[in-house]
Design a protein around this nucleic acid. Structure first.
Length: 253
DNA sequence: CGAGTTTGACCAGCGC
DNA sequence: GCGCTGGTCAAACTCG
């Protein structure tokens, strides 16, 4: 039993790590494609190298003199689902939508509808993976999360979300959450969920049994995927490079 | 009727 | 100065 608990917590850690790494991998891929395609994007990349990307910030508008708290969140959705909705538990009011030059899918602009809350978010489909929504959050909520208690117990950050979602479409699907305004993490709720190979967990299944089942499925899936190792290696090296860059910048300041 | 969404217009920054 | 682009505004519209 202890072994099971230990495996469970290790699995949790690994899952969180994987989520972070996948987010970074997607960032890296997008940066790479940007660098390869135009002089304008070359300029963007230079700006990123000069610190524009510190803190996960991808907004390079020079007019932003005071840099707000910016973070990016990746959410897996159904590619056929055209709604740019990221359910993070907060109440958002859409105030604009635009088609940007480097992405054929429209970008939606939202403001937090809580009174005096300065937080904004932009939601756009990833060019790389149309089934992936990229939500960019700016600022920090000056009020409690509507589901703050549940969020805290699940270890969510101040945005009420984890940094990115698991990439398997059968794992995380914001549109499958339904009217529940909670976070986009299906793994948290072990009833009637879909596992990697599409099988449903039985409603009567014990939580621990389900977790154990999930651990096995995930392990099989990851070890059976030859691209995972290289993707993981790339993401880790990216992380190392990032920390080196940060160190250099700190030394130079 | 109020809250939220849509969408065209407008504004500011930037490169040429 | 002009055109391009991203971000925001606000009137019209929709929905519960």
């Amino acid at each position: 039993m202890e072994e099971l608990n230990r495996m469970g917590s290790e699995n949790k850690k690994l899952t969180e790590m994987l989520l972070l790494l996948q987010g970074q991998l997607i960032d890296l891929k997008q940066k790479y494609s940007e660098n390869c395609h135009s002089n304008l994007k070359k300029r963007k990349a230079e700006e990123e190298n000069l610190g524009g990307e510190i803190g996960g910030n991808s907004w390079k508008r020079p007019r932003e003199t005071t840099r707000a708290n910016v973070s990016r969140v990746y959410v897996r959705t159904d590619p056929s689902d055209t709604t740019l909705v990221v359910r993070d538990g907060y109440q958002w009011r859409k105030y604009g939508q635009k088609v940007t030059r480097d992405n054929p899918s429209p970008r939606a602009y939202y403001k937090c509808s809580a009174p005096n809350c300065p937080v904004k978010k932009k939601v756009q489909r990833s060019v790389e993976d149309p089934s992936l929504l990229v939500a960019t959050y700016e600022g920090e909520h000056n009020h409690l999360h509507p589901n703050s208690q549940a969020q805290m117990s699940l270890g969510f950050n101040h945005l009420g979300m984890i940094p990115c979602s698991i990439s398997s479409p059968t794992y995380t699907n914001s549109s499958s959450i339904g009217p529940n305004p909670g976070p986009n993490i299906l793994l948290m709720k072990p009833t009637g969920l879909t596992t990697i190979d599409g099988e449903k967990s039985s409603p009567g299944m014990d939580v621990k049994e389900f977790q154990q089942h999930l651990v096995e499925k995930m392990a099989n899936s990851l070890t059976g995927n030859p691209s995972f190792t290289s993707a993981l290696a790339a993401a880790i090296s990216n992380r190392i490079l990032d920390s080196d860059l940060t160190d250099n910048l700190e030394n130079n300041i």
